[in-house]
Structure formats: structure tokens, C-alpha cells
Design a protein around this nucleic acid. Structure first.
Lengths: 133, 133
DNA sequence: GGGTTGTACTAACTCTGAGAAAGTACTATC
DNA sequence: GATAGTACTTTCTCAGAGTTAGTACAACCC
């Protein structure tokens, strides 16, 4: 899949360029790795359930370290997938939620999880067949 | 999302257990990381285009090392996502293709890539807004 | 009133696993 | 005869994932 973009390139000229995750130099690769990655995908799907505070999300996404959660949330915010709303209080109170775009990505990530969980017996069977050899 | 499975647990008894990617100890986590990961997702989506030989796939999935490609293909084969067909010749000739289940996962991965590539201008805009702060 | 727990992080350190490079055992082409 | 290509595996190295500790308070318990 290849998409064409218009904008400004290094030379400062208006140009068309191609968005293609299969190209290792395409900046969309970075976003793809973020939203598909281990923690990014789980964070997005969790946020489909509603607004989460930092530590609540950390408990929901079992196994994330604080470092990785804050790192991926910053990335997701930067790429317009989540919104961060902080009340300037002590103790801090920060809420994370999905943007419309984040919701669309999260829905598609959920479809994958739903499929994997639903067909998990088939996966286990395949694995047993493979290991038997 | 939570799915219920029946099978044999550690004690040897038939038991019901819950498949839940959000649980760090659930074995489905492993499959999810494999098919959603950087190389797993791209390999699956590439194989939607048809059968690929090892090195052709390596050229298609720009940036994978041979080690990582062979590692993820083995994982995908083990989990019943791809089939590996090797002709016992020298030089070797090996073909990789999707199983029906692999195809379903790949279609969903493709939906994500399609969305990201299509909305990439929005992502770039969000990133510029974030960095301006 | 003192101790513990909780909040949302960041900074420093450790250690796993991703990536690079080289080896294999041949064949086909120049 | 040399070079390129096939599908890998093995070894080595370094970036990035994960762990731990620290922050600056508030709210709860005894």
C-alpha cells in the first residue's frame, strides 16, 4: 500500500512524496511500530474502554514498566492518537483518552486481538503440531 | 476482550482457562507480540501479495536482517500463520505463504497500515503541533 | 504525630535481545 | 576461475527495554 503526500521537503520546495511502511526510511514506519508495538497496541485498545489515569492504565496493561508506558504515551500523544489532560494539582491527576484517529486505530488493533483470542485454540493446535516434529 | 479455552493445565486435569492478552502471563501475549511486532506484521502483510521466497521477502520487507526474518517466519509457522515449503535442492528453494488464519490476521494488519498511510498527513500535523510546544 | 500508601513521572543503571558480519555448501552465470 | 545468488545459522556488539530509586506532596490509619 502506497499513499502520496504533499508538503515541504528538505530543500524547502513543495513536493509529493510516497508514504510506504515497507520502506525503511519512510517516517510512517516509526508510527507503525509505535501503534503496533507491544505496549502501544495494548494501550490504545485499553483506552477504547474509556479514559484512564496513568497508574490505572499501568495496572490494565499488565507488565508495562512506568518508563515504557510514559514513553509510549508521549509518542502516541505526539502522533495524535491520544490526548493527555493534566490537572495541575498535588498529587498529580492526569487523564488519557483517544482522539478520533486514535479510536480508529484502536478499533483495528482490537479486531486483531479479538481474532487471536477467538482462534487461540487453533494457534495452540498448530504449535503442538510444529513442536511434535 | 476475554476468551475461554478448554484443555489441559499443569496439573494434568482438564480445565477452562481464560485467554487474555492484557494478562502478562497469558501465552496469547507471545502470539500477539509476534503478529503485531515490527517484522511479523510486515511479513504477514507482504505475504498477502502472494507466495514469497526467503530472499524476495527480505527485499520486500525493507530493513529486516536475515536473522530476524528467519526467526519471525519460524514463529509465524509455529503459530499456524504461514506455511513453509522447501524443495530439497541445492541451492535451496523455499516458499512461504499464508494459512487461512494467517490471511485473516494479515487482512487486519493491512487495515491498520492502510489507515496510517491514508491519514499520515493528520499524523504529521499532530506531530508538528506537539513539537511546537 | 508518625508511618504507609498513592499520584505521575524522570534519571541512572543493568542486562536482554535486535542487528551486523561472517560462515556454509553448493549452482549458475560471466 | 571469479563472482553472485540461495536459505539459512552462529558469533559478536551495542541500543534500547526493564529495573530501581528518587521527587513533592496529600490522604489515610493507629
Amino acid at each position: 500500500m502506497i499513499a502520496v503526500m504533499s508538503g515541504t521537503d528538505d530543500s524547502g520546495d513543495t513536493a509529493k512524496w510516497v508514504v510506504d511502511v515497507f520502506d525503511k526510511n519512510c517516517p510512517s514506519r516509526h508510527t507503525h511500530e509505535l501503534v503496533s508495538g507491544k505496549w502501544g497496541s495494548l494501550a490504545l485498545v485499553a483506552l477504547r474502554e474509556g479514559t484512564y489515569r496513568f497508574n490505572a492504565l499501568r495496572r490494565r496493561v499488565d507488565g508495562v514498566s512506568e518508563k515504557m508506558l510514559s514513553q509510549t504515551l508521549q509518542g502516541l500523544e505526539r502522533d495524535g492518537m491520544v490526548v493527555r489532560e493534566a490537572q495541575n494539582t498535588i498529587p498529580p491527576h492526569v487523564e488519557y483518552s483517544l482522539t478520533p484517529l486514535g479510536r480508529r486505530v484502536a478499533d483495528r488493533q482490537f479486531a486483531i486481538i479479538e481474532l487471536l483470542e477467538g482462534e487461540y485454540d487453533e494457534i495452540v493446535a498448530a504449535r503442538e503440531r510444529y513442536d511434535a516434529k
